[in-house]
Amino acid sequence: MSERKDYTNGPLCLSGRNLTRVFGTGAKQNVAVDHVNFDFHEGEFVSIVGESGSGKTTLSKMLLGLLNISEGEILYQGKPRDISNRKKLNEYWKGIQPIFQDPFSSYNIFHKIDAVLLDCIAMRGGKHLPYEKKVEMMTEACSFVNLKFAELTNKYPFELSGGQMQRLMIARIFLLKPKILLADEPTSMVDACSRATILDMLLNLRDETGMTIIFITHDIGLAYYISDTIYIMEHGKFVESGKADEVILNPQAAYTKRLISDVPKIHEEWDLSTVEMNNTL
């Protein structure tokens, strides 16, 4: 980590200007994302940290062009994003791909795993490659996330565990190699050990391809471990942002401080008095 290149000053890749999303109207109105501003640079590893319901997924769906924007705008590579027609939208989607939060709803249960991966190869123009070559590519992508393609082939997604599904989603990204990856808690169901391996692999992928990774999480410790830049989100607003070191070591917002203090510290002794109290209950 010490010889990390500085990615925070690269060319602009994705920016938000007063980006807002409102759900519902009248009394039921809910401002899920509230006038947020940001600049993500090429190759930057950005973490968006916030607790449940703070608007992270809503923001990512807007960035993906899956959810209409209520107010503000998104700049793509410095210019206002134009996804006004199907063709432009498809072009935009070649550059930005997601890993969704819920792996169980991310798969079409009627399609085999092979179909998911073959689809990615086809999207990258490899539709007419010989089948052996395709298998080679799929095997490589699977081993990238510690999966064995030979064990997955001809299986249906629902035959996999949640963690395996999430890893397969990352394998999909490996095949697609988009310019921007929007990863919404991509490792929430993976054990801690594999998580570190996978995240390191994502970093490697970034280093190899210059992919911008927008990493959504509520784990500020994890964000500190991998990201260049951290955005802290509370109730739809960015309350603090900056380089990872600055935000974590010198937090300004009360919310950030609270998030940091909530991170469990393994080296600390258990508070025996509370343990005893619980036992007597």
Binding site: L64, L66, Q97, D102, C120, M123
Partner: peptide
């Protein structure tokens, strides 16, 4: 609104 439909859209 299921994500598999979103992914399919994103695959063009």
């Amino acid at each position: 609104n299921r994500d598999h439909v979103n992914l399919s859209k994103l695959s063009g």
